[in-house]
């Protein structure tokens, strides 16, 4: 349950980060856009485990008190934020520039163009990548045991330690991950199909 809880919170946070970063890049906000690119590169090119260690053991050193739970969410958000940024960005870039021009020629402002023309199209285009990220992030929660969070992996290791029934415990671990992820995956394809049905393929 803890796996799911942290997963959901972390994913929500990474969506928020993703949207903010994408907006910064879309509107080419000076300075901030460079910060975003640096963040995206750092976060995508380092393993989650290392990031978690940094947050869990590093932050207290500079005086920020943390608990494993908050660290888990923060770590997931840090990693997921950049993946979401990339997914949203690819969606926005896939919308033809002339679409923006035709909307502008109708008198729409920059924000209106983003909201009514670009965003709805980008959302549909980036949805498969978005779903892949959600599943990827849920799976990544398995490294949380390293910072002593009682996630599925931790519980499984615990059970192995207690009962020496390695095969059974690991089998159950796989089953539980599937139980969490399969519905997410199925739901994803369902929404994807609905979205496509609702208006695309010009």
């Amino acid at each position: 349950m803890l796996t799911l809880q942290i997963g959901v919170l972390g994913i929500l946070a990474s969506i928020a980060i993703g949207i903010i970063c994408t907006m910064i890049q879309y509107f080419k906000v000076p300075i901030a856009r460079h910060v975003v690119s640096v963040y995206v590169e750092i976060s995508r090119n380092t393993p989650l485990l290392i990031q978690l260690f940094f947050i869990y053991y590093g932050l207290p050193k500079i005086g920020i008190r943390t608990n494993p739970y908050a660290c888990g969410v923060a770590g997931l958000a840090f990693l997921g934020g950049s993946y979401m940024t990339e997914a949203f960005r690819s969606g926005i870039e896939a919308v033809d520039r002339v679409q923006t021009e035709s909307a502008a020629s109708l008198g729409l402002s920059g924000l209106q163009i983003l909201r009514y023309v670009i965003f709805p199209q980008a959302l549909t285009i980036s949805f498969p990548a978005f779903m892949a990220n959600v599943i990827f992030l849920l799976k990544e929660t398995s490294v949380f045991s390293a910072i002593s969070l009682m996630d599925l992996m931790f519980t499984a290791k615990d059970l192995i330690g207690l009962y020496y029934q390695t095969t059974e415990s690991l089998f159950l671990l796989v089953v539980f991950y599937l139980l969490i992820l399969l519905p997410v995956s199925v739901l994803g394809s369902f929404i994807e199909r609905r979205m496509r049905y609702a208006g695309f393929g010009s």
Partner: peptide, 20 residues
């Protein structure tokens, strides 16, 4: 944006919004 409302433009590639 106000001026653009007074100047309508039609493009070679139509550019209808595909989601609407």
């Amino acid at each position: 944006t106000e001026l653009r409302q007074k100047v309508g433009m039609v493009f070679q590639s139509y550019e209808l919004f595909p989601h609407l």
